[in-house]
Structure formats: C-alpha cells, structure tokens
Design a protein around this nucleic acid. Sequence first.
DNA 1: CGGTATCCCACTCGATACTG
DNA 2: CAGTATCGAGTGGGATACCG
Lengths: 139, 139
Amino acid sequence: MSQRNSAVTVEVKAAPSGEHDPVACTVLQVLDRVSGKWAIGILLECAHGPRRFTELERAVKGISRRMLTLTLRNLERDGLLTRTVYPTVPPKVEYTATPMALELYESLVSLASWAERHRSEIADARSAYDHSSAPDPTL
Amino acid sequence: MSQRNSAVTVEVKAAPSGEHDPVACTVLQVLDRVSGKWAIGILLECAHGPRRFTELERAVKGISRRMLTLTLRNLERDGLLTRTVYPTVPPKVEYTATPMALELYESLVSLASWAERHRSEIADARSAYDHSSAPDPTL
DNA sequence: CGGTATCCCACTCGATACTG
DNA sequence: CAGTATCGAGTGGGATACCG
C-alpha cells in the first residue's frame, strides 16, 4: 500500500465534508463517525467498561477481524476510544470509551427513542408505499 | 430493470437490520434512513416548508437529479416526506416534511450540538493520532 | 418541469491467509 | 492474543442522456 501521504497505514475514512448547510454539515460529520455497521455496537460494548480485542470480536457478533480493527482505529482516531497496550506476553490490549463517547451515546439514545416512538408509523408508511405501486394482478 | 418483485421500480434500500443488540439495532435503523450524503440536507430544506423538485435541486448544492430522486423516494417511503403532485401543465410537485420528520430533526440537532461541543477535541485527537504514526523524516 | 435509464468508478466490507 | 495483507463482491453515488 505505497501511498505518498504517509500518515496512516490502515484505511482511514477520508472526511467527505464540504457541505454548504452548517447544520447538515455538522450532523453529517457525526454520522460519518458512527455510521457503518459496526461502530455503534463497538462503542456500546466499550461503554460498559474496558474491552479486549477478542472480547469485542465475540461480543459484536458477525464482525470480522479486519472490520473490527478498522472500526477500532477510526474510533480511536476520533478520540472516542482509548487504546491501552500492556506489553505482556501474550499481548493484551484494552479499548475504553472516552467521556466524549459516553456523551455521544446519550444523544444516540434520543435517536433510538425517536425510532421507538415512530416504529409502527414508519412500518405503515413503508407498506403503504410498497403496495401503492401495485403489482399488475393480470400477471 | 426487469425484476419479478414488481413493487418499486427505483432502487430502494433493503433494510440490513438483523443486529443482536436492541439499542445498536434501533439506532442503526434510524441511521440507515438518514445516512447517505443527501437525506439530511433534503430533510432540512423541506422542514422549512414545501419545496419543489427543482428548488431542492438548487438548494441542495452538488446533488444530481438521480440522487435527488432516489433520496426523495426513500424518504417518502419511510413517511418522512409527503409528495404532492399538482396535475397542471407544466407539472408541479411539492415535497413536505411530515411531523415525524420534524421530530427527528430535533434529535439530529442534539447530535449536532454534541459535535459542536467536541469539535476541537475531535480535531485534536485526529491530529495527535495522525502525527503519532510519524512519517519517516529521512524520505 | 420532473423525472428515468445506463454506465461506471470508488469505496465498503467479507473471506481468507499470514505474522509478531 | 492482536493484529496485517490481499483479493473480490456488492453498493453508493456521479455523469450523462433521454422521456411524458
């Protein structure tokens, strides 16, 4: 992976940014941080206390080593997780949610509550929409 | 685009879902709805009142017709926007945010406020991280 | 005006194999 | 134990051209 910009060797999300609307822009930045299939699950686990690599691998079911590492690195880079290496043998590494991440989690809960309140409303809207483009009965 | 499932002709996001953690799962569902580069910008515009197709095209700068249509369809499908067609000539179509969408917007604002509060903290974490994998000075 | 249809690239993510 | 390297499929999204 010979890339001129020598900073990081792992794939790290390049901030898309560059929006015009200040609010949309800000929200998008947060979203980019916690979007992706795994970030929230990992954050959630680490919010309950320090977690080791393999603990996360088991706790966040379905994740691959690769995605675990990648997501961990991005969260660490954004200051949402701290990575602590114990120079023992065998090696031991712990990931901990930062206070900032715990605050973020509170905001995410408000999002979740919105989803709970409107779960059925959304489901209804979906089926209504999907049925309105009705399949031709003559087929 | 001959697909047997005749419901919708446009590409519509198939909900990935299927997570194990209830909170992570719920949040992910919301995120999938408003993720993507354009959903929030469009929602934001329509929150200020009914908007026509070409108004949105101009307001949400950088968006293509294709992505505008796709995102509008998804938002409509989830019941976040209502689409009103005036059968005039030339045609006129208006998109309006639903009450549910306006509520969601409030939640997004709390996310934005989190981002504001921690903007510098994140920036610091980033540069610290990026500098720690220091490029070889001898190059 | 308000869309669709196509083509295509970049990026995400999973599977698998290898390493300090 | 805690990663890294590589390959390849699937998908998000841009450009462009066409349609009722």
